[in-house]
Nucleic acid binder design. Structure first.
Lengths: 237, 237
DNA sequence: CGTGAAGTTGATGCTTCTCAAGCGAAGTGG
DNA sequence: CCACTTCGCTTGAGAAGCATCAACTTCACG
C-alpha cells in the first residue's frame, strides 16, 4: 500500500461524485485536504479487515472494491460492490469493529478521514449529513433486497441476478455489449452465493439460451431482458 | 386500522425512545404533533405493503413489527424486527416504492409523518439527521450480518442465530428465562430462512441438548452460551 | 366436546455442494 | 523457442442437506 503519494487537494480533485467535494464548504474542504490520508492499493489488497477497529471512513477516489464476509472454511460472500464516489466503512461511533472486509477489485485510490473529523463535519454540516443519511438509506434497501434474493432464489436465478447487478454497477461497453469489469468464477460465485462450478454450468446454460456470450472471463450481454425475466417474479412493481 | 383515536401530543407521550421526542425542539414537536397521524393496528395487520408508494416514515409508539419480503409461491423472509422506538419505512425521497412489507407482531401503535415534514425536519435539525444517520448505519451493518448468516450457515446454525436475535431484540423474563415474545413455527422459519418442519425438528434437538425448553409456543433459554457456541465461528472478534 | 388450525415426525426426492479428473491458457526457465 | 508447471475453468458423478409431502397428534376455541 502506497500512502499519500497520490494525495491531492480536494479542490483540485476531479472526482465530482465525492460527497465531501459536493457538500463541503471550501473552508471545510481545506480542512479535509490537510487531514485526509490518501492510499493507493494494488488489486486484491485489503482496505480494511473484518474485526479491525473502525477509525474512520473511506471515500473511493478511483477504482472499484468489493465488501465481503469471510468465514473460516466457508465460501466468501460479497455483500456489495462499490466504485468511484462510493463510501466504505460505514459504521457507528465508539469502539466498534468492522463486520466485513473491503478488498480492491482494481488498482484503487481511497481517501481516509478519521472518526473525529468525520463526525465533526457531520455535526456542523447538515447538508452533508443529510446526503449521507440518504445514501445509507439507499444502501440499506439494496442490501435488504440482496438478502431477499439470497434466501429465496435458486441457483439459476441468483446467477442471473448477479449479472444484472454487475450491469447496474459497472455497465457495459455500448459497442461490444461486454461488461466493463470482469470477474473470476470464484468472485461470481461469491457474489451470487453459490459455488464456482455452478457458475460454469449456468453460464454455459445461459449461452445455449443466447442470453449471454462468454469470451474467456468477459461476459457479453445479448439479452438483458431475458435475464431480467428469470428474476422478474422478485422485482418490485 | 383505527386512525388518530390514540393520538397524543408528542410532549405528553411517554415513549422516550422516540427519535423525534429526543432530538426535536419543542417548537418542532408541536409541529409534529399537529401534522402526525397515529394509527392503531391489530396483530397481523399490514402497516405498509411491498410496492406501495412511500409517502413518509413511521415511528413505533408501542408494540412490535416484522419487516418481511413476500414472493409469490415462496416462503416469506423476515428481514428485520422492530419495536417501540424503532423506525419503519426508511427510504429515499422522490417517487419510490417499498421493497418490503411491514406487519404488526402485536397490537401496535405507530405515528406517521409525511415525506415533506420529515425531510424539512432533517434539513433544519442537524442533531436529528445525525442520529438517524447513525441508526441507518447500524441497521445497514446488522442487515449485512444477517445476509452473511443466511448465505453461509446451515439450518441448525440459522435457527440458533434466530433465537439469539430474538433474545437481543425482545429479551427474556429474568424469572422464567422465557423469551418476551412468542412466535409461530412459521414465523420462526421465516426468520431463520428455513421451513417450519425444520424448526420443529431442530427445537426438539436443542431441547435434547438442554439448550432450551419449549412450553407450547414459548421458548425458555437454558443455555444461551451453548447456542452462541453453535454460531461462534461467524461472530466478529 | 367437536372441529379446524398448528405442530410433530417420518419418508422421499430434488437441488446443489463437493470431489475428482481433464483441459486449456498463461507464465517460467532452460 | 519449446517443454514444464501452474492456475483457473469445465464437466461429470456421487453425496449430503434440506424442502416437501403425508400422516398423525396436539392445541385452541367456540
Amino acid at each position: 500500500m502506497i500512502i499519500n503519494k497520490n494525495k491531492i487537494e480536494c479542490e483540485k480533485c476531479d472526482n465530482n461524485e465525492c460527497a465531501l467535494k459536493r457538500y463541503c464548504t471550501s473552508q471545510e474542504l481545506t480542512l479535509v485536504s490537510l487531514n485526509k490520508t490518501t492510499s493507493t492499493l494494488k488489486k486484491n489488497n485489503h482496505i480494511f479487515r473484518e474485526g479491525d477497529f473502525v477509525h474512520g471512513i473511506y471515500f473511493i477516489q478511483n477504482g472499484a472494491a468489493k465488501v465481503i464476509s469471510d468465514t473460516l472454511n466457508k465460501r466468501q460472500q460479497i455483500v456489495r460492490l462499490s466504485k468511484t464516489g462510493g463510501i466504505l466503512g460505514y459504521r457507528a461511533l465508539g469502539k466498534v469493529k468492522y463486520y466485513f472486509n473491503a478488498v480492491a477489485l482494481t488498482d484503487l485510490t481511497v481517501c481516509f478521514i478519521d472518526n473525529e473529523l468525520y463526525h465533526n463535519l457531520c455535526k456542523s454540516n447538515n447538508q452533508l449529513t443529510y446526503h449521507l443519511m440518504l445514501q445509507y438509506a439507499y444502501e440499506l434497501g439494496r442490501t435488504g433486497l440482496r438478502m431477499k434474493y439470497q434466501s429465496q432464489m435458486n441457483s439459476r436465478e441468483k446467477i442471473a441476478e448477479a449479472i444484472i447487478y454487475l450491469n447496474e454497477v459497472f455497465g457495459t461497453n455500448p459497442e461490444t455489449k461486454k461488461l466493463n469489469m470482469s470477474f473470476s468464477r470464484q468472485d461470481l460465485a461469491d457474489l451470487a452465493g453459490t459455488a464456482p462450478e455452478q457458475i460454469s454450468r449456468q453460464i454455459a446454460e445461459f449461452e445455449k439460451e443466447r442470453l449471454i456470450r462468454k469470451h474467456k472471463r468477459e461476459i457479453e450481454l445479448n439479452n438483458l431482458e431475458g435475464l431480467q425475466n428469470i428474476v422478474q417474479e422478485y422485482k418490485i412493481n
